[in-house]
């Protein structure tokens, strides 16, 4: 801790001047990004723009070569924290491909995610209470998996796994949600439900959504950040950024 308390900022997450190089290839190039505590933000960009890598940096999976990443009302650097510490600080992440524990039941998956102590010792002596069971049932109902609690996650359809993963995110009660391509493999109706859910969630927390589907983004009705070659190309409303000639060029000009 420095003797000078860092000034309180209005943003929950602040990424500034971050660069990452993989074997000489600059995947993230002097990227800066900030999001408020109750904000919904869409991140778009062509394949390989660095969207997933951006999430890797925030969640501690990839360490940047330079730049700072801070999180919280009293900003704390995330760069010295492990993945698990960052997750416990309140950053939840949904992966591009659904990643659930296939060999475990839907309720086991949710129990694991439920906000509770995480140290081995506490988990060893942790006992499921009626309240935990009720919470798990509630979460499952919220994503339409109420009838599937005892089933193994591996048996679920692709779309159902996406939902299970979203429910696991909710179970963690994160303050910042990073959602990578949530709509992939979902039906039209499920996409509508997903957008509604994300908009609802952003009322109480920060939500960053990476998505390719423009219709999906339009329904989110929020500020859009366009990434290209590892840095921000444009930022603003969807209409604003889609009018930007540079954006049109990277999306359509090739």
């Amino acid at each position: 801790m420095t003797p000078f308390a860092p000034a309180r900022t209005t943003s929950l997450l602040e990424v500034s001047g971050v660069s990452v190089t993989f074997d000489g290839f600059r995947a993230i190039n002097n990227l800066s990004f900030a999001i408020g505590p109750q904000e919904l933000r869409a991140v778009i960009g062509p394949n390989g723009a660095g969207k997933t890598t951006f999430m890797d940096i925030v969640t501690g999976k990839t360490r940047p070569d330079e730049g700072t990443v801070t999180f919280g009302e009293v900003p704390r650097s995330l760069l010295r924290m492990s993945e698990a510490q960052i997750a416990r600080a309140g950053v939840g992440r949904k992966f591009q491909r659904p990643t659930v524990f296939e060999d475990q039941s839907v309720s086991e998956n949710l129990m694991l995610a439920l906000k509770a102590a995480r140290t081995p010792w506490r988990v060893l002596f942790w006992r499921e209470t009626a309240k935990d069971r009720a919470r798990v049932a509630e979460l499952a109902a919220q994503v339409g998996l109420a009838d599937h609690l005892p089933r193994k996650a591996g048996e679920l359809s692709h779309g159902q796994k996406q939902w299970l993963e979203i429910a696991m995110l909710l179970a963690q009660e994160p303050r910042l949600l990073l959602v990578d391509e949530p709509a992939a493999g979902m039906s039209f109706l499920e996409r509508e439900q997903t957008t509604a859910l994300l908009v609802e969630l952003a009322k109480t927390r920060a939500v960053v959504v990476v998505e390719h589907d423009m219709e999906f983004i339009r329904r989110l009705n929020c500020k859009v950040t366009v990434l290209h070659e590892g840095s921000v190309l444009a930022e603003g409303s969807l209409d604003h950024v889609t009018k930007n000639p540079q954006v049109i060029e990277v999306y359509l000009g090739r």
Partner: peptide, 27 residues
């Protein structure tokens, strides 16, 4: 119980469990 569930999660996908906040190395 949950401890066993966490162990099987480490076996199948430890990185995922880290993102749930579990100190995998400690386990």
């Amino acid at each position: 119980g949950k401890f066993g569930s966490a162990l099987r999660a480490i076996r199948d996908d430890e990185q995922r469990l880290r993102f749930l906040g579990y100190p995998v190395e400690g386990y």
